[in-house]
Computed example of a mutant assay.
Amino acid sequence: MTKRLFLLLTAIAAIAVVAIYIPPDEFYPAGFATLATPFLLIGTAIALVYFLFQKSRWSLAPAAVIVLFLVITNGMFSLGLHKEGAGDRETVKVISYNVNALNYFDRSQKYTGTLTAFASWLSNVRPDIVCLQETVPANFYKILPSYYRYFSGKETLEGDSLGLFIISRYPIAFAGKREFAFNSFNRLIWADVVINHDTIRVINVHLKSYNFYKASRLRKLKNIKGGLMARSYHAKLIRNFIDESPYRVVLCGDLNEPPHSYVYHTLSHKLRNAFEDAGTGYSYTYNFLGSPVRIDNIFASDGVVFSSYKAYHDITLSDHFPIEADIVLQDRD
């Protein structure tokens, strides 16, 4: 009986692992399967230990599933093997951070203190390009005042704006937005940033969250389904926008999806990831129900390489942690 249960669990885990290739907006159960993958893999690891103690040939089954997961899902861990030195080329420091409005909607003095701390930290870090999500533009124009910037957001019911910023030390030639739905908080903004004699397209995105606030259990399940389907569709829109770019691309943002997801796989199939190339070990950018997960990312297209990656776990101004990557533009052939 135990053997059958472990084999069934292993089979279900195998299905969940390959579900990464199925877009949830076309078949939403695939999204639920990928969410369950970490728990299924824990069970698969227990099955592997059980079969090894039994000296059973069935140990090959859970071992194969675990290997399959590690091969398909490259973004869970990193050894930094693809990190490239800058040499004599200029490095560009990029930061991506979901600031969660810096407590603006608390309507209290806490916002002023958080904003001041954020401005001080950013000035000390001295980034070249900053992509921010969930920002309220009030007072943000005073941060890094000599920088160029572009903002796009949606009006809240209280009359505020909430959206995305791209802030750049380098000039911005053109900028624009793509809303994922009419008047949606979730959108894509872009800026063509001129770096010396070259131009790159910086893209900043924020994909739909689950919005569990004050939701019943049934509503939470519906929100999970809606979030999975929406983000799957968003990923396709982002991929198509990248394909249309006349320049090399740097993509930043809050995906609200872990590496073992259709969304991450769709984007990393086209782009390199800062953590995968230049990070070390296991990194996280958000604590989801007490579990550390990496849902904030910096990607880049061919011709843009990463020389470093860092997550600032000591910066607790938001429910997310900021991430930083140094990029280097390779010479064109």
Rank of each mutant, 00 (worst) to 15 (best):
I95S: 01
K110P: 07
Y312R: 00
Y262H: 01
P292E: 01
K142V: 07
N183C: 10
A33F: 13
E90M: 14
V130R: 00
R217F: 10
L60N: 01
F275V: 03
V136P: 10
A61E: 00
A119Y: 06
P145G: 11
D198W: 05
A117V: 05
V65M: 00
A86Q: 05
Y147N: 05
H313N: 14
L122I: 12
D160F: 13
K225P: 05
F306T: 04
F105M: 02
C252I: 01
W121I: 05
Y141L: 15
S152H: 11
I167T: 09
Y170F: 15
W190K: 03
I12Y: 05
N211T: 07
V193L: 08
G281Q: 05
N287E: 07
L221R: 10
D243K: 15
A19C: 13
Q54R: 15
A19L: 04
L115M: 12
S283N: 14
A175R: 15
V263G: 00
R219Q: 14
T266N: 14
Y141S: 15
E84V: 13
Y97F: 15
V67L: 15
P127D: 00
D331C: 07
I66L: 15
V18R: 02
V17N: 10
K55C: 02
I172C: 09
D254C: 06
K177F: 08
N204D: 14
P171V: 04
P29E: 00
I315D: 06
A278M: 06
L289I: 09
T116M: 10
D319E: 09
D243F: 09
G31T: 07
R4H: 08
A230G: 04
E244D: 12
L237Y: 00
